[in-house]
Every structure is written in C-alpha cells, then in structure tokens.
Design a protein around this nucleic acid. Structure first.
Lengths: 216, 216
DNA sequence: GGTAAACTGCACCGGGTAGTGCAATACGCC
DNA sequence: GGCGTATTGCACTACCCGGTGCAGTTTACC
C-alpha cells in the first residue's frame, strides 16, 4: 500500500538480494510459527541478515508480514497455474489428469514448513489483517487460481469432456471436493498428511466432481 | 488429562460456578484473540475472577486452553446434533430441510465472537497442540458431528429420499459442499459473512449434494 | 461463632520481544 | 583512491505477559 513505486519497492540503488532473502525467510518463519510467535530476530537469523536491515526495508513487523503475504500469494498462484497447464492442457484421461492436478496442487499448498504454507498463518490472522489487504490477498491468491481453473474447465467443456453451465461454480466445487477436505485434515499444512490419505481424498473428490459435471 | 476424577474436576467443596465462568470467558477470549494474543489477565477480567483463581483451577494457560477446547467441542457437537434432529427428523421438503439445517449449522459454528468460534483458534494452533489432544478434539467435535450426520443420511436413504452407498463419504460431501465454502469465505468466523452470501453458498451446495445423491 | 477452603488483590520476578540509535564497516560506483 | 549508501553489531529502552507468593477476606458448612 505505502510503497507502490514502479520497479523496486524501496528506492535504493540495487537491493534485491537482501530483500529477497528477507522475504523468503519471513515466509518460512511466519508460515512455521505464525505471526505472533515469529520473532523478527528469528527472521533476521534465518535470512542471514541484520535485524536493522529488516526494519530499514520494511518499516515494521506488520508491514513485513503484509508485504510477504501478498508477494507469496502471487507466486503460489503462478505455480498452481503452471500445474494446471501441465496437467490440463492436453487431456489424455480426464479423471487421471484431474486427479494428478489436484494432488500436485494440494501438495504445493499444504507442504508443511515450506514458503507457500503461509496460507495457514494468513487464515489464522485474518481478523487482524486490514480488510483491503485481505481482499488483495484473496484476489492475488485463491480467487485468481479459481478463475484460472474455471477457464480450464470451460475449455474442457467446449471439448465435450464435461458438462457445465457455471464455470466459476464448477471450479469452486472442484476445489471443495478435491482440496478442502485435505486442507481440513492437515489443518492447512500444520499437521502432515500421508500421501495415501491425500490420494484417497483427492480420488474420491474427483469422482464426485465428475458425477456432478459428467461428459455429455 | 491430569484432573480426571469422578464428578468434579478439582477436589473442592463445590466450585462449578467460578469454573464455568472461567471456561466461558476463556472460550470467548481465545476465540476472539487466538491463543498467543489472549492474555490470562484478559480472561480473568472477562470472567470477573481473580487471575490467581484461574491458575488454581487450571494450572497454566496451556492446560486451560486444552480443557476449554475439549469441553467446547462436546457442547458444539450437541448443539449441531440438536439442529440435525430438528430439521432432519421429519422431512417435509428434503431440499428445504437440508438447506435450513446447513444454514443453522454454519451460523452456529461461524458466529464471530461467540463461544463456539473457538474452531478458528484450534485450527490456527493445530501445530502446537499435542497430537492426542488434537485427536480427542476431532473425535468429540467434527468427527462426532460427521457420524451423526451420516446416521441421518442413512435414515433418509432408507426412506428412499436419496441414494447413497457410503454414508460417511456422503456426510463428508455434504459438509464440504454446504459448509466448507462458507467457512473459507468467513475465515472460520474471523470475518463476518452476510446472511445473503451464506444462504447462496448453502443453497447451491445443497443442490449439488442432491444431484450427487439423488432420490432413486 | 468457628473453621477450613476458596477467593481476592497486589506486588513481584523472569523472560521475551518490537523497535531505536549509533558508530563502525563493507561494498558498489566514479 | 575516494565517496556514498547499504549493512552490520550491539547496546538499550519500553512494554507485555506468564506465573508465583502471600496476606487478607469472603463464603459455606458445622
């Protein structure tokens, strides 16, 4: 919000390296510990950077968190878009391809301890995040992914691979049936979920989805 | 865990009043602030009780949280069972009755600031909760409700109101389609959700559920 | 009225953390 | 080599919170 220039975020000569290191470390630590438990000292240590440098770059802990949260959402959206493209661009076996996509997506989002496990922390902290930032996160993250998925489903429908009248609703149902259950079981990545359990959840979810939106 | 006598929990003459007050206050404050942010002083103040009394009853903050979490799960399960009984015992219009149940259930769980909004905090803190306690919470809460719902669905199927082979899976799908979406939108109660949005989400969810498990 | 247990109020300790100030230093650029 | 900026390290403040100790007060029961 405050730092919205073109190109870089803080007006300096060339500072991407340290800043990236801080952002990555913050993602990891915030994702692992949650906002309150994560100490700025821990993030500085994880980033191999002086605490003072963090404050020079980001102002305070809250701004750091909000910045990282938004950047992260965009990156994860791109990753998921890549997965969707890889698995859904050319369909060879609809059920198998949808299943593979859903498994990979769940793993990407729920991999505990990784940079993209921040979602848990964001949701935990939702009540303390400024509404406009929360909306921006939704738009850059879950909503963007949902739109992208809806586009893929529309294309599949145009190829007579499935029947649907409302692509957005179908995308929502796909996510609910193949992701939300796993997210719930693993508490959004806080507790590990076995590959077998994930595969079972996703498989039955895809089957239900295909019953809901069958080939014409 | 530690205090597991018959009848009362702490060996005193008669102490339910203060203890209940503390438990209610703890539910409210933990649910509103989260575990780390909630201070024992705030809970004491909310309960109209001395901080020392809390420590006399519950030992420490973590034990207080775990106790309250388990009690709360049981209470909420009973409330939901009551709702299910009220709406699903005698069916007059299957879709309408399922919708009414789903709406009431979502409101009960997601009502922000209320005692039963603790679910958000539990999920946020899942990584720091002892696995056996987490399992106990699941068993007393979500899993119990899911079992109860599965029983209702089985009964409805036996009345030829819907078709299903796996009641547990059907109950899971019902919850995913009529609850998880709303929970996600409201961040498990942290952000208010409008009645209109809730009703829309639930209605489309019930419709999808009925397409998935149609009348024979 | 007396007794014992529960309860209160308050001061206090220990520890952790957000954030600042500043002098010294490393580093890219001319 | 020299300049300027980013960075560092560290000390230091201010604050909050979990938990304890204790002396005094309420409350239930005999």
């Amino acid at each position: 919000m405050s730092t919205a220039n073109p190109a870089t975020t803080t007006g300096s000569r060339r500072m991407p390296e340290k800043r990236r290191a801080i952002a990555r470390a913050a993602s990891t630590v915030f994702g692992r510990e949650g906002y309150t438990r994560a100490s700025v000292d821990a993030i500085a240590s994880e980033a191999g950077v002086s605490k003072r440098t963090i404050y020079n770059h980001f102002g305070d802990k809250e701004k750091l968190f909000l910045s990282v949260v938004l950047e992260n959402a965009g990156e994860l959206t791109e990753i998921i878009a890549g997965l969707a493209d890889r698995h859904l661009h050319k369909i060879v076996d609809l059920e198998a391809d949808l299943t593979a996509f859903a498994v990979d997506r769940a793993k990407a989002v729920l991999a505990a301890g990784e940079h993209y496990a921040l979602g848990r922390t964001i949701r935990a902290e939702a009540g303390n995040i400024p509404p406009d930032v929360l909306a921006a996160w939704l738009a850059a993250g879950p909503l963007a992914s949902q739109r992208d998925l809806a586009d893929h489903l529309t294309r599949l429908a145009s190829q007579d691979l499935l029947t649907l009248d409302d692509p957005d609703l179908a995308a929502t149902h796909f996510t609910l049936l193949t992701f939300s259950g796993a997210a719930d079981q693993s508490f959004y990545g806080a507790v590990p979920i076995s590959d077998a359990a994930l595969h079972t959840t996703v498989t039955t979810g895809v089957q239900a989805f295909l019953r809901l939106y069958p080939r014409p």
